Simulated assay, not measured.
Amino acid sequence: MLPDRHDHPPGHGTGHRPGPAQAVYGISVAAELAGMGAHSLRLYEEHGLLTPARSAGGTRRYSDDDLARLARIAALTGQGINLVAIARILDLEDANTALRDRNEALTAERDQLRRDRDSG
C-alpha cells in the first residue's frame, strides 16, 4: 500500500496515480517502499546506478521507475554482485531495452510501408 502523499505536483489532485516516470516520492518514502535505507539510495546515486529527479529546492524525488530499478539493484546485490558490476549490467540492460524499442519502431514502420505499398 502506498503512503498518502500531500505534495502532489500542480494539477495532480484529480485522484489519478502518477505515471511510472513521474518523480513524486521523497527519499524516505522511496527507501521505505524499496525496503532499504535512505543511505543505500544515496550510495547508489553516488555510484551512478540511479539518478533521481530533483525538486527546485534540490530535494531528491523518486518515481515508480526508480523503485523498479532499486528492486533490480537489490536483486543483483542479493546475488553478491558488486556495485561496479551492477552499474555495467544496468547499462547493458538499458542499451538492450533501447535497441529492442528501436527494432520494434522500425518493424512497425516497415509494416506500415508494406501496407501502404500493397493498398496503392
Rank of each mutant, 00 (worst) to 15 (best):
I73D: 05
Q22K: 00
L92V: 08
G26D: 06
R61W: 03
E46I: 07
H16V: 02
A56I: 06
L90Y: 00
D91G: 06
A53S: 13
D91C: 09
A74L: 11
G57P: 01
G80R: 15
S63D: 09
I89E: 01
L76I: 03
E93Q: 12
Q79I: 02
R17G: 02
Q79C: 08
S55C: 09
P52H: 15
G19V: 02
G58P: 03
D91T: 11
L41N: 06
G13I: 01
P9S: 15
L70E: 02
R88C: 08
R42P: 02
M36L: 13
A56R: 14
I73N: 06
T59E: 07
G58I: 11
Y62S: 07
A75N: 04
H12D: 06
H47N: 06
R60W: 01
V24K: 05
I81R: 05
Y44G: 02
L92S: 10
A34M: 13
G48C: 10
H12T: 03
E32Y: 01
G13L: 14
L70Y: 01
R61Q: 14
Y25C: 01
V84C: 04
G19Y: 03
G48I: 10
S55A: 14
Q79F: 05
Y62G: 03
Q22N: 00
L76H: 05
P9E: 15
L67A: 08
A53D: 14
R17E: 03
L92R: 12
R72E: 14
G48N: 09
H12I: 00
R60F: 01
R72V: 10
D66K: 11
P9C: 12
G13A: 14
A68Y: 01
G37S: 15
Y62F: 14
E45C: 06
D66M: 15
G35I: 15
G58E: 05
V24T: 07
G78A: 09
R69I: 09
P9T: 12
A74T: 10
G58K: 10
H16F: 04
L92A: 12
G48L: 11
D94I: 04
I81N: 04
I27S: 02
R54I: 05
